[in-house]
Protein backbone atom coordinates (compact mmCIF):
# COMPACT_ATOMS: atom_id res chain seq x y z
CA UNK A 1 0.00 0.00 0.00
CA UNK A 2 1.60 3.34 -1.03
CA UNK A 3 1.83 5.93 1.77
CA UNK A 4 3.01 8.79 -0.37
CA UNK A 5 1.27 9.87 -3.56
CA UNK A 6 4.24 11.93 -4.81
CA UNK A 7 5.21 11.17 -8.42
CA UNK A 8 8.59 12.49 -9.61
CA UNK A 9 7.55 13.81 -13.05
CA UNK A 10 9.40 17.17 -13.17
CA UNK A 11 6.56 19.10 -14.84
CA UNK A 12 6.15 22.88 -14.39
CA UNK A 13 3.47 22.22 -11.74
CA UNK A 14 5.95 20.10 -9.78
CA UNK A 15 8.41 23.02 -9.91
CA UNK A 16 5.97 25.64 -8.62
CA UNK A 17 6.84 27.38 -5.35
CA UNK A 18 5.40 25.28 -2.45
CA UNK A 19 3.57 28.29 -0.96
CA UNK A 20 1.93 28.89 -4.38
CA UNK A 21 0.79 25.26 -4.47
CA UNK A 22 -0.75 25.57 -0.99
CA UNK A 23 -2.47 28.84 -1.96
CA UNK A 24 -3.72 27.16 -5.18
CA UNK A 25 -5.48 24.41 -3.25
CA UNK A 26 -6.93 27.03 -0.89
CA UNK A 27 -8.16 28.98 -3.96
CA UNK A 28 -9.78 25.88 -5.48
CA UNK A 29 -11.40 24.94 -2.15
CA UNK A 30 -12.74 28.48 -1.92
CA UNK A 31 -14.11 28.40 -5.49
CA UNK A 32 -15.77 25.00 -5.06
CA UNK A 33 -17.32 26.08 -1.76
CA UNK A 34 -19.49 28.83 -3.24
CA UNK A 35 -21.49 26.85 -5.79
CA UNK A 36 -23.94 23.96 -5.45
CA UNK A 37 -25.08 23.44 -9.02
CA UNK A 38 -23.27 20.51 -10.74
CA UNK A 39 -23.05 22.52 -13.99
CA UNK A 40 -21.28 25.40 -12.24
CA UNK A 41 -18.74 22.89 -10.91
CA UNK A 42 -17.94 21.61 -14.41
CA UNK A 43 -15.21 24.19 -15.30
CA UNK A 44 -13.24 23.24 -12.17
CA UNK A 45 -13.58 19.55 -13.06
CA UNK A 46 -12.14 20.34 -16.52
CA UNK A 47 -9.26 22.28 -14.91
CA UNK A 48 -8.49 19.38 -12.57
CA UNK A 49 -8.56 16.84 -15.41
CA UNK A 50 -6.17 19.09 -17.37
CA UNK A 51 -3.99 19.26 -14.25
CA UNK A 52 -3.96 15.45 -13.97
CA UNK A 53 -2.93 15.19 -17.64
CA UNK A 54 -0.22 17.88 -17.32
CA UNK A 55 1.29 16.34 -14.20
CA UNK A 56 0.79 12.76 -15.46
CA UNK A 57 -0.84 11.93 -12.14
CA UNK A 58 -3.30 9.41 -13.59
CA UNK A 59 -1.82 6.41 -11.70
CA UNK A 60 -2.81 8.05 -8.40
CA UNK A 61 -6.30 8.84 -9.68
CA UNK A 62 -6.62 5.26 -10.90
CA UNK A 63 -5.55 3.78 -7.57
CA UNK A 64 -8.11 5.96 -5.75
CA UNK A 65 -10.91 5.44 -8.30
CA UNK A 66 -13.15 3.54 -5.87
CA UNK A 67 -12.82 6.32 -3.31
CA UNK A 68 -14.01 8.84 -5.92
CA UNK A 69 -16.99 6.64 -6.84
CA UNK A 70 -17.86 6.04 -3.16
CA UNK A 71 -17.62 9.73 -2.30
CA UNK A 72 -20.00 10.75 -5.11
CA UNK A 73 -22.42 7.87 -4.49
CA UNK A 74 -22.56 8.10 -0.67
CA UNK A 75 -22.86 11.89 -0.67
CA UNK A 76 -25.65 11.91 -3.24
CA UNK A 77 -27.52 9.26 -1.25
CA UNK A 78 -27.03 11.13 2.04
CA UNK A 79 -28.45 14.37 0.75
CA UNK A 80 -31.37 12.59 -0.91
CA UNK A 81 -32.37 11.64 2.66
CA UNK A 82 -31.54 14.96 4.33
CA UNK A 83 -32.31 17.61 1.68
CA UNK A 84 -36.11 17.62 1.76
CA UNK A 85 -36.85 20.43 -0.65
CA UNK A 86 -38.95 20.78 -3.81
CA UNK A 87 -41.79 18.72 -5.24
CA UNK A 88 -41.26 15.03 -4.36
CA UNK A 89 -40.81 12.50 -7.15
CA UNK A 90 -40.55 9.61 -4.64
CA UNK A 91 -41.40 9.85 -0.94
CA UNK A 92 -40.96 6.58 0.97
CA UNK A 93 -40.19 6.95 4.68
CA UNK A 94 -36.84 8.73 5.06
CA UNK A 95 -36.28 8.63 1.30
CA UNK A 96 -37.30 11.94 -0.25
CA UNK A 97 -36.37 12.22 -3.92
CA UNK A 98 -37.06 15.45 -5.74
CA UNK A 99 -35.28 17.10 -8.64
CA UNK A 100 -33.79 19.59 -6.17
CA UNK A 101 -32.56 16.88 -3.76
CA UNK A 102 -31.01 14.91 -6.65
CA UNK A 103 -29.27 17.99 -8.03
CA UNK A 104 -28.14 19.09 -4.58
CA UNK A 105 -26.89 15.61 -3.60
CA UNK A 106 -25.09 15.06 -6.89
CA UNK A 107 -23.63 18.59 -6.69
CA UNK A 108 -22.29 17.85 -3.19
CA UNK A 109 -20.85 14.53 -4.41
CA UNK A 110 -19.10 16.24 -7.33
CA UNK A 111 -17.92 19.00 -5.00
CA UNK A 112 -16.31 16.52 -2.58
CA UNK A 113 -14.80 14.57 -5.49
CA UNK A 114 -13.27 17.81 -6.80
CA UNK A 115 -11.81 18.57 -3.38
CA UNK A 116 -10.37 15.06 -3.31
CA UNK A 117 -8.97 15.46 -6.84
CA UNK A 118 -7.35 18.78 -5.86
CA UNK A 119 -5.61 17.17 -2.91
CA UNK A 120 -4.51 14.19 -5.02
CA UNK A 121 -2.98 16.60 -7.55
CA UNK A 122 -1.27 18.53 -4.73
CA UNK A 123 0.15 15.38 -3.16
CA UNK A 124 1.21 13.98 -6.55
CA UNK A 125 3.31 17.08 -7.20
CA UNK A 126 4.57 18.09 -3.73
CA UNK A 127 7.18 16.45 -1.50
CA UNK A 128 6.79 16.52 2.29
CA UNK A 129 9.82 18.85 2.61
CA UNK A 130 8.23 21.23 0.11
CA UNK A 131 4.99 21.19 2.07
CA UNK A 132 6.85 22.02 5.30
CA UNK A 133 8.81 24.77 3.48
CA UNK A 134 5.55 26.20 2.12
CA UNK A 135 4.02 26.22 5.60
CA UNK A 136 7.11 27.98 7.01
CA UNK A 137 6.88 30.60 4.23
CA UNK A 138 3.28 31.18 5.30
CA UNK A 139 4.28 31.84 8.91
CA UNK A 140 3.92 28.39 10.52
CA UNK A 141 6.75 27.96 13.13
CA UNK A 142 9.56 25.73 11.82
CA UNK A 143 9.29 23.41 14.82
CA UNK A 144 5.74 22.51 13.73
CA UNK A 145 6.95 22.00 10.15
CA UNK A 146 9.76 19.82 11.47
CA UNK A 147 7.35 17.69 13.53
CA UNK A 148 5.17 17.18 10.41
CA UNK A 149 8.15 16.20 8.25
CA UNK A 150 9.54 13.88 10.94
CA UNK A 151 6.15 12.21 11.43
CA UNK A 152 5.83 11.60 7.68
CA UNK A 153 9.30 10.04 7.64
CA UNK A 154 8.58 7.80 10.65
CA UNK A 155 5.29 6.33 9.37
CA UNK A 156 6.86 3.78 6.95
CA UNK A 157 9.45 2.85 9.59
CA UNK A 158 6.74 2.09 12.15
CA UNK A 159 4.66 0.16 9.60
CA UNK A 160 7.75 -1.91 8.70
CA UNK A 161 8.48 -2.46 12.36
CA UNK A 162 4.87 -3.61 12.97
CA UNK A 163 5.03 -6.00 10.00
CA UNK A 164 8.27 -7.50 11.34
CA UNK A 165 6.66 -8.09 14.74
CA UNK A 166 3.56 -9.63 13.07
CA UNK A 167 5.74 -12.01 11.04
CA UNK A 168 7.77 -12.97 14.12
CA UNK A 169 4.58 -13.67 16.09
CA UNK A 170 3.12 -15.70 13.21
CA UNK A 171 6.29 -17.84 13.14
CA UNK A 172 5.69 -18.55 16.82
CA UNK A 173 2.15 -19.72 15.94
CA UNK A 174 0.17 -16.63 17.00
CA UNK A 175 -3.13 -16.56 15.09
CA UNK A 176 -4.12 -13.15 13.71
CA UNK A 177 -6.73 -14.36 11.22
CA UNK A 178 -9.54 -16.17 13.08
CA UNK A 179 -12.49 -14.70 14.97
CA UNK A 180 -14.60 -11.60 14.46
CA UNK A 181 -13.19 -8.33 13.13
CA UNK A 182 -12.98 -6.90 16.67
CA UNK A 183 -11.26 -10.04 18.01
CA UNK A 184 -8.72 -9.81 15.22
CA UNK A 185 -8.14 -6.11 15.84
CA UNK A 186 -7.57 -6.81 19.56
CA UNK A 187 -5.01 -9.48 18.70
CA UNK A 188 -2.89 -6.68 17.26
CA UNK A 189 -2.56 -5.01 20.69
CA UNK A 190 0.50 -7.14 21.63
CA UNK A 191 2.02 -6.13 18.27
CA UNK A 192 1.54 -2.44 19.00
CA UNK A 193 3.38 -2.59 22.35
CA UNK A 194 6.88 -3.41 20.99
CA UNK A 195 6.40 -0.91 18.14
CA UNK A 196 5.36 1.74 20.65
CA UNK A 197 8.24 1.02 22.99
CA UNK A 198 10.75 0.85 20.13
CA UNK A 199 9.56 4.28 18.99
CA UNK A 200 9.82 5.78 22.46
CA UNK A 201 13.31 4.39 22.91
CA UNK A 202 14.29 6.48 19.86
CA UNK A 203 12.75 9.65 21.32
CA UNK A 204 15.56 10.47 23.76
CA UNK A 205 18.37 9.80 21.28
CA UNK A 206 16.57 11.74 18.58
CA UNK A 207 16.07 14.76 20.86
CA UNK A 208 19.74 14.71 21.88
CA UNK A 209 20.88 14.41 18.24
CA UNK A 210 18.65 17.34 17.28
CA UNK A 211 19.93 19.56 20.08
CA UNK A 212 23.53 18.62 19.25
CA UNK A 213 22.83 19.96 15.74
CA UNK A 214 21.52 23.26 17.09
CA UNK A 215 17.78 22.55 16.83
CA UNK A 216 15.96 25.31 18.66
CA UNK A 217 18.98 27.64 18.73
CA UNK A 218 17.34 30.22 16.50
CA UNK A 219 13.70 31.13 15.90
CA UNK A 220 14.47 31.57 12.19
CA UNK A 221 16.88 28.80 11.20
CA UNK A 222 18.51 28.62 7.79
CA UNK A 223 17.27 25.94 5.41
CA UNK A 224 19.09 23.64 3.02
CA UNK A 225 16.18 23.69 0.55
CA UNK A 226 15.24 27.01 -0.96
CA UNK A 227 12.66 27.96 -3.57
CA UNK A 228 12.61 31.20 -5.53
CA UNK A 229 9.35 32.88 -6.52
CA UNK A 230 9.42 32.97 -10.35
CA UNK A 231 7.24 34.52 -13.06
CA UNK A 232 5.33 31.27 -13.54
CA UNK A 233 4.48 31.27 -9.80
CA UNK A 234 3.10 34.81 -10.00
CA UNK A 235 1.06 33.87 -13.12
CA UNK A 236 -0.34 30.83 -11.33
CA UNK A 237 -1.27 32.90 -8.31
CA UNK A 238 -3.02 35.50 -10.50
CA UNK A 239 -4.92 32.68 -12.27
CA UNK A 240 -6.10 31.30 -8.93
CA UNK A 241 -7.22 34.76 -7.77
CA UNK A 242 -9.20 35.22 -11.01
CA UNK A 243 -10.81 31.79 -10.52
CA UNK A 244 -11.70 32.54 -6.88
CA UNK A 245 -13.23 35.94 -7.77
CA UNK A 246 -15.13 34.43 -10.73
CA UNK A 247 -16.67 31.75 -8.54
CA UNK A 248 -17.64 34.24 -5.88
CA UNK A 249 -19.37 36.28 -8.62
CA UNK A 250 -21.18 33.15 -9.84
CA UNK A 251 -22.44 32.64 -6.28
CA UNK A 252 -23.30 36.33 -5.90
CA UNK A 253 -25.30 36.41 -9.13
CA UNK A 254 -27.25 33.31 -8.02
CA UNK A 255 -26.16 31.11 -10.94
CA UNK A 256 -24.39 28.61 -8.70
CA UNK A 257 -27.43 27.88 -6.54
CA UNK A 258 -30.08 25.19 -6.74
CA UNK A 259 -33.63 26.51 -6.44
CA UNK A 260 -36.23 24.05 -5.07
CA UNK A 261 -38.74 23.13 -7.78
Amino acid sequence: MPIYLYLDRRTFIHRLHPAVKILTIVGIFWSVYWVDNPISLLPIAVLLLAGAQLTRAWPNFYSLRWLFILVIFATTLTWIVFYRQGKPLVHLGPLFVSRASLEYGFGRGIKLAELLATSVLFLSTTKVEEFAFGLAEMGVPYRVGFAITLAFRLVPLFIDSALTVVQAQRLRGYDFDSGSLMTRVRRYVPVTVPVFMGALRKANNMAMALEARGFGYSARPTSYVHYEMRTVDVMMLLGVIVLAVAYFLIYYSGYGAIAPR
Binding site: F146, L150, L200
Partner: peptide
Amino acid sequence: VLSAISAA
Protein backbone atom coordinates in the same frame (compact mmCIF):
# COMPACT_ATOMS: atom_id res chain seq x y z
CA VAL B 1 9.96 14.59 19.04
CA LEU B 2 7.20 12.97 21.13
CA SER B 3 4.53 14.80 19.14
CA ALA B 4 6.11 13.55 15.88
CA ILE B 5 6.29 10.00 17.27
CA SER B 6 2.65 10.15 18.46
CA ALA B 7 1.64 11.40 15.02
CA ALA B 8 3.58 8.71 13.18
